[in-house]
């Protein structure tokens, strides 16, 4: 995913293989199916066929490659590597591809484009009121084509995906986050797990990390979004004051982004802890940023991950 194929030396191959072995030893492969495999079910209990399954002469057959999940009567196949399937409440990152009369159309790496209605977002001035024709005319002033936007899935009606971009919970408008200095990394959506918190603010580094459920991950400089005025002031601050701080910050951004890229090539699930772990590892080794994508570090991370998982297992 976005990274060129790595060339491994012989010892590295052996080590990688060993790490993989240790990862695979803790899993059972009984529930794995490929397309058109029949799934064993007990018909006496009654069966509800979910996603990824189909009926063939009374048999339940998988239509995807993945793992079979069973919840009471429901049987479904959780596919790997498919496009993002939106669920209500997911936090996603998308790119504006069209500004329409009353809504923006966003590409969120899904089957279809998503809509962000003008009425479903807080206005920049923070005033609650009806949206007027003037607001519609000024929509480009809020988001333009090719802007990156973070929003929440509001609902799925028919086949349309609607987003909203207001949050009272955090008391700030995270949707109107005009993303600034930073990097966007794209990973397979199945690597991102839904969690309580998808916005992370690493205070010690002054960095925002937004892990979108749709596999788009933003690593960037922390932006204060509480108050539009404050944000403006911050930007106009004399540049030389921040210069030194910015260098370490930018380095951290690059490291975090490369850590995510590496985890995505290795196919490990991506959480804040894992990303932090990889960055810390690279810093403790005094590794150059570009060396983080090299084969040696890749093997090292795989070994660390295998170790971490086995120690987690023991604790339980």
């Amino acid at each position: 995913m976005g990274v060129v194929q790595l060339q491994f030396s012989k010892t590295q191959k052996v080590r990688l293989h060993k790490a993989k072995e240790s990862l695979s030893s803790k899993m059972n492969s009984d529930s794995l199916v490929t397309v058109a495999d029949s799934i064993h079910v007990n018909h006496e209990d009654g069966v509800l066929k979910g996603h990824g399954t189909a009926d063939l002469d009374g048999q339940v057959v998988a239509t995807l490659c993945g793992t079979v999940e069973r919840v009471n009567k429901l049987i479904y196949v959780r596919g790997l590597g498919s496009r993002y399937k939106p669920e209500v409440g997911d936090i996603v990152i998308g790119r504006v591809i069209e500004v329409d009369q009353k809504f923006w159309r966003l590409d969120i790496n899904c089957n279809r484009n998503a809509y962000l209605m003008l009425s479903a977002m807080n206005m920049p001035d923070g005033v609650q009121r009806r949206r007027t024709a003037l607001d519609e005319l000024n929509m480009r002033g809020i988001f333009e084509e090719a802007d990156l936007i973070c929003a929440e899935v509001r609902g799925l009606s028919h086949d349309d995906i609607h987003l909203h971009a207001r949050s009272k919970k955090y008391g700030k408008i995270y949707a109107v986050l005009q993303l600034s200095t930073g990097q966007m990394v794209m990973v397979s959506p199945y690597l991102v797990k839904r969690q309580k918190q998808h916005f992370h603010h690493l205070e010690e580094h002054g960095i925002d990390l937004i892990i979108g459920c749709n596999g788009l991950i933003w690593v960037g400089e922390h932006v204060k979004v509480k108050d539009e005025m404050e944000y403006q002031v911050n930007l106009t601050e004399p540049a030389h004051k921040k210069e030194e701080k910015n260098d370490t910050r930018r380095e951290y951004i690059c490291r975090a982004a490369n850590a995510i890229r590496l985890l995505s090539t290795l196919g490990f699930s991506i959480t804040l802890e894992v990303i932090k772990g990889v960055v810390d590892l690279s810093q403790s080794l005094n590794l150059e940023i570009h060396d983080m994508l090299g084969s040696e570090f890749c093997v090292l991370v795989a070994e660390k991950e295998a170790e971490r998982r086995s120690s987690n297992k023991r604790k339980q």
């Binding site: 993989k20 990862l23 899993m27 490929t34 490659c65 790997l80 590597g81 196919g267 490990f268």
Partner: peptide
């Protein structure tokens, strides 16, 4: 093809972890 697919699925699932 089935073998290859199963192998690939296994690999992805193992790497991702539970």
């Amino acid at each position: 093809i089935r073998e290859i697919l199963l192998e690939n699925t296994k690999e992805l699932e193992y790497r991702r972890g539970s």
